[in-house]
Amino acid sequence: MNNILETKKLYHDFDGLQVLFDVNLQIRKGECHAVIGPNGAGKTTLFNVITGTYKPSKGKVFFKGADVTGKSPCDLCRMGIGRSFQITTTFSRLTTFQNIRLGILSKKGVRFNFFTRVDKMEDITRETDELLRRINLIGERNFPVSALSYGKHRALEISLAMSTDPDLVLLDEFAAGMSRDETHNAVELIKKMTQGKTVVLIEHDMDVVFSLADRITVLHRGQILAVGTPQEIRQNQEVKDAYLGDLEVSAVC
């Protein structure tokens, strides 16, 4: 079994509106896999179904060979799935340090501990600082995250997904709204942080996709249109049509 994540005949609908349609996604262990597709293709919904935000209406999700369909985000995280969001969802009133520390606490399994002061848990503090140094946020250690710049805030968002040391990381449009430099930094950060991990990312920026992804899945109107290496996808006529077709539609609108 070299597929770390697999979905089988996955369907999802919102009140009758079909969003996912017979999706059979296969993610190999250790690869970086991009999910691309035009707006409204169902990419984020796919992430939501995989990570437990929604239960699929039909079909199954397998993680490390186990059926995890309908498990809560919390359970999936403990099994080793980390996720970042398209819209930044950090802990806005806590400091950068406190944000990352929450992830470290979870990783160490420190949850219902009422008997120690968290500030005095030196191993936690040390590990948090180590991670902060790796993601270049040590200088902003004690800033409330609302005071961070956009790029740094997004970097924190991504790092939070990886702070629990997951085996599989799902990144939802991590580069959205970033400038060139910020995107470049983020790509470097992801390369550095995800060594030995499996990554699935949703991305619109094709440069980012081609610089990171080993394989690509193209999603179109809730269905998988093509799967392959970046080269194969680049040359795929159907994919071109799907993108072009959508362009025409939006041009008419």
Binding site: T51, S72, C77, R78, F85, L102, S106, A161, T164
Partner: peptide, 10 residues
């Protein structure tokens, strides 16, 4: 601050 993220952090 963010109950959803707490859930996703396990």
């Amino acid at each position: 601050d963010n109950a959803k993220r707490i859930d996703y952090l396990g």
